[in-house]
Design a protein around this nucleic acid. Structure first.
Lengths: 216, 216
DNA sequence: ATTGTTGCATAACGGCGATATGTTTAGCAC
DNA sequence: GTGCTAAACATATCGCCGTTATGCAACAAT
């Protein structure tokens, strides 16, 4: 059992999924790129499904890392917007992976187990904590925190999947819809419209400020 | 060119997709069930993708029929909730079809064209009209109607896809999240919380009333 | 009647996931 | 060192897939 081959196979599969999409994932192709035979996929992962499962777990971990990497500011509502941005950007950066993770993109009989989905639900913990902060700060109404967190997740997921599916065309594309969508939900959660708008806009400015040094 | 064979193939494909999922869709299986050969799929649809495309178009039409079949009441906000219910119920009744339509469930290299997606966007026309009514009735703020309609669509789509993916588990399943999600968005659109809650609840009672004679 | 076209059956091709069957290698008791 | 065992991997094969090529019967037009 060579742990290097194990990781190499996952990385190659992830790269193939990212660059050429689900239909590029085949045992023969992966084995060829790894310089081994198709049997490696079976000895290490029990088959194609097992390998895809590992790639999906990797995707969940990456998503979780992106979300926990969001630094909290003094404005919890702005933090929520930052969380949404991080979530959306991660999905847009890895569209095929996101589809397999949440879209149930049925690739050659692969399907997630309840265990896999449990990883996906951890996505919510960051959001729940943020909603709790918003409530504690008096910005959101003292409603069911889990409900509100789910609403944020659902809306962002819906936006992302429709965007990935090509259903949000310019001029009303995902970018133009993201902020008003968040503001509407925040107002629905009890925040004042002007305050929510300010928080969301400030989160955008913060992102732009952080990205500009990298672009320059 | 037998138009009956044409329709029979589509119906069989749709039935297979509905009952056994995407992986049951194969030219050989469909041809066997239709009592013909695999060539029929190619003479009529040019290949598997063409057949799937017809099934998807059928799905869009069925969705549109479900949405336009929603009778408008005296309360446009309740109408919006009824629209959302019809959308969700249609998706839950045809989960595999919905995945192919919007989830980009990559089955054997099939992918939607911009023309296909245009059909999907017609989904919005019912919603846009309903939002316009809500604004006209003074229930929603006089904001961008297209934005609000998109928000409704996005949220309902997000709820449905997460539900289909198995990510909304009891006790916070799709059923428990549907109404608060709608209320939050309606409040975000400018409606008063108590009024929105009443409208959504009345829409649920209306549905229950209409379904009870069928159940008995 | 002949010709061309259409509709579909049959067979074949390349590629897929998966399995069966070697073959080679690694670890280890002695 | 030798011999044994088990794992890692290669090769070949099976059944299924979408697709294409080929053949053939029915029919239309001339």
């Amino acid at each position: 059992m060579d742990p290097r081959t194990h990781t190499v196979l996952i990385e190659i599969a992830a790269a193939l999924l990212a660059t050429e999409g689900p239909q590029a994932l085949s045992t023969r192709r992966i084995a060829a790129e790894a310089g081994t035979s198709t049997m490696a996929v079976y000895t290490y992962f029990g088959g194609m499904s097992g390998l895809v499962r590992e790639v999906v777990h990797e995707g969940f971990q990456r998503l979780e890392r992106h979300l926990t990497a969001v630094r909290s500011t003094s404005d919890p509502v702005a933090d929520m917007a930052l969380l949404g941005r991080a979530y959306r950007m991660n999905a847009l950066a890895n569209p095929h992976l996101y589809s397999v993770m949440f879209g149930g993109a049925s690739l050659s009989g692969f399907s997630l187990t309840d265990d896999d989905r449990q990883h996906g639900r951890y996505t919510l913990t960051s959001v729940v904590e943020c909603v709790a902060k918003c409530v504690a700060a008096g910005r959101f109404a003292d409603a069911d925190v889990a409900h509100v967190a789910h609403q944020m997740w659902i809306a962002t997921h819906g936006l992302v999947t429709l965007e990935l599916g090509g259903y949000l065309a310019a001029p009303l594309d995902g970018e133009a819809l993201f902020e008003p969508q968040l503001v509407a939900l925040m107002v629905g959660a009890g925040d004042r419209p002007d305050a929510a708008t300010r928080s969301v806009r400030s989160s955008r400015r913060r992102i732009e400020r952080e990205l500009s040094p990298q672009a320059g």
